[in-house]
């Protein structure tokens, strides 16, 4: 694992964090960065763990933060719920410095949050976790009939799709008309 981060980390983060401290090897100094989600709770993550996320890795490379700057400016992910971000951080810490096995048992088990997790992982570009999340989604319909799949994956029928499409068109038409009227009012 590469270590391109600036300086070494020895101090605890300024704000309390729920993220577990990563167990860095004593002889190898490790950098830490800070991220927060929608709930503003800051998570301290080692640079090694963040290697999993192509997005954050790119940000670190491009911004060139020092230790102090990183502490003062946690990466904001306002579109990710705090608990989802926590799950992702946990997973990254557990898989720090090692490739993801084909059958990963450390994935968060809460199926109801799987949808948000998939979106968050996709946004953060964590390829291995995304692959495993997709497999989890696929496993929900293993051996099911079309009717069961329709129910589990909440797939609208063709009639519902058509109705939704009509509704969307109608709404788009109204919005366009409203904008035109507003523009005409402004012109007057």
């Amino acid at each position: 694992m590469s270590s391109t981060e600036q300086g070494t980390s020895s101090a605890a983060p300024a704000e309390p964090t729920t993220a577990p401290e990563s167990a860095a090897a004593p002889e190898v100094p490790e950098s830490f960065y800070y991220v927060h989600g929608k709930d503003k709770v800051v998570h301290k993550v080692s640079a090694g763990a963040l290697q999993h996320s192509a997005l954050i890795h790119g940000m670190i490379s491009n911004l060139g933060y020092t230790e102090e700057q990183a502490k003062a400016n946690p990466f904001p992910f306002e579109n990710i719920d705090g608990d989802i971000l926590q799950m992702v951080v946990d997973w990254c810490n557990q898989h720090k410095g090692k490739p993801t096995p084909p059958e990963d048992t450390n994935l968060p088990k809460q199926k109801e949050k799987l949808f948000d997790l998939v979106l968050a992982v996709n946004y953060l570009e964590i390829k291995e976790l995304l692959t495993y999340c997709c497999k989890q989604v696929a496993m929900m319909v293993k051996g099911k009939s079309p009717e069961e799949i329709r129910e589990i994956w909440m797939i609208p029928t063709d009639a519902e799709d058509e109705a939704a499409e009509k509704e969307a068109k109608k709404r788009a038409g109204k919005e366009a008309a409203g904008e035109t009227a507003a523009a005409a009012g402004d012109a007057k």
Binding site: E112, F115, A138, K144, W153, M154
Partner: peptide, 25 residues
């Protein structure tokens, strides 16, 4: 049964999910 709104996922993610499935599924 747990439910999952597959078609609310972006298209590429939906295809990624499908690509991990068996052909009969």
């Amino acid at each position: 049964t747990q439910r999952f709104p597959l078609q609310r996922l972006p298209d590429d993610l939906g295809l990624m999910v499908l690509s991990t499935m068996e052909y009969h599924e």
